[in-house]
Design a protein around this nucleic acid. Structure first.
Lengths: 219, 219
DNA sequence: ACCTGAACACCGTTCAAGT
DNA sequence: ACCTGAACACCGTTCAAGT
């Protein structure tokens, strides 16, 4: 399986575009992580002078933000199943999947302030699910933020773990669950008792936590 | 208020230590953010050659990890009030405060895998609170992780906002709540209805979300 | 033993020059 | 109009040399 498409021929004039630059940048990021991305690396992969990129993006940071935009926009349609609980599960599961699709970009996504049309639309829709289910505005806002922060915390942790595995074993490595506790278990009885559950599959873990928060909602 | 202590005199031989280097590094980070920290900046502030630092830390990354260690270790004692609910609230409130004490280091903390003696001890203690309150192991593990990920997501978001404010207005700026929704509210009725609550004080918001999760626990 | 300073291989970004 | 390439001001890190 080959994600890279090396270009040995000089990219012809006029073919450079934000599209092409972002696609190529995303390839670099997926292979070598954000740390492996540089204007010079991008230029090399396209066989253009690195400074040609500045025609299309003001700074490297702008380019990374545009990549983060792609990640956060998401590709899956908003759920409309008729069951608010199922739709809520699916909404945050989608957010998780978006963040994990390009795990090394997850930190870049986090350091952006919330926003963007696509993001507002999803937020509006999600709060709508809660309000339509009968929750007062205050509770609906609180529930939304709790679910969002839980999903962010979990997904960023999982993305960190996935990115670290990829960095060690290459982009096609299978990611194993977080190994639980290395220190002497005898000193930490409560850790020892729950070690098996703490080291569960990240996806199972995510859904159980989501279920816990949703259970508090009385929808 | 002056956090910086400029050194015009050459630091004498033999006074360099991990202690002094970390203290100075933390000053730089608190003033200019992680982005403003470099081995050369550290050398300049101590009036030593930048490469002298390599006697005490193998790489810049090791030094940043040591800073993150300080942040995550926390200074406050584990709560033992007798009320498990109150202790749980306090435990995660402590984690939040630790992360916010040096907001620009929060992303560095996140990209570390969990661990360290101090961290295991806190984890063990927290899971103990849940088990001693009668929760079965599986539920206790699940509840702990949910509370942890919620706290991480919220604190990292708040830290990002705080760090951005400091970067714009200097280290002594007062951090205002996140301003809610800029886009045309008419297009997003559910956002408009809950805008006031979404823009609440971050601390209030945090405790309400924590309360929501804790309410699901039936302790 | 501990610190220095030159050097190497990188960065992001600017700007005059080429086509 | 679009791309190039030299140049500038930075990086982290290594290693021989100094004290």
């Amino acid at each position: 399986m080959e994600t890279a498409q090396p270009r040995h021929t000089r990219t012809p004039r006029g073919t450079l575009s934000q599209q092409l630059l972002l696609d190529t940048a995303m390839e670099i990021v997926d292979i070598g992580g954000v740390g492996g991305f540089s204007m010079r690396a991008l230029g090399a992969r396209l066989n253009i002078d690195p400074t040609a990129v500045y025609r299309h993006f003001r700074t490297k940071n702008d380019l990374l933000e545009a990549l983060a935009d792609r990640v956060v926009r998401g590709t899956e349609p908003l759920p409309h199943s008729g069951s608010p609980l199922a739709d809520l599960r699916e909404t945050f599961a989608q957010l998780r999947r978006s963040l994990l699709r390009h795990p090394t970009l997850a930190p870049v996504v986090l350091r952006r302030p919330p926003g963007g049309e696509a993001s507002w639309e999803r937020t509006n829709h999600t709060i709508g699910l809660l309000r339509d289910a009968g929750m007062p505005d205050h509770e609906a806002a609180n529930a939304f933020q709790t679910l969002l922060f839980y999903t962010l915390g979990h997904s960023l942790t999982e993305a960190r773990h996935t990115a670290a595995t990829i960095a060690r074993k290459g982009p096609d490595a299978t990611v194993t669950p977080v190994t639980a506790i290395s220190p002497a278990a005898s000193r930490y009885p409560h850790l020892a008792a729950t070690a098996d559950h703490l080291a569960a599959e990240m996806e199972t873990q995510f859904h159980e936590g989501l279920g816990l928060v949703l259970a508090a909602l009385a929808i």
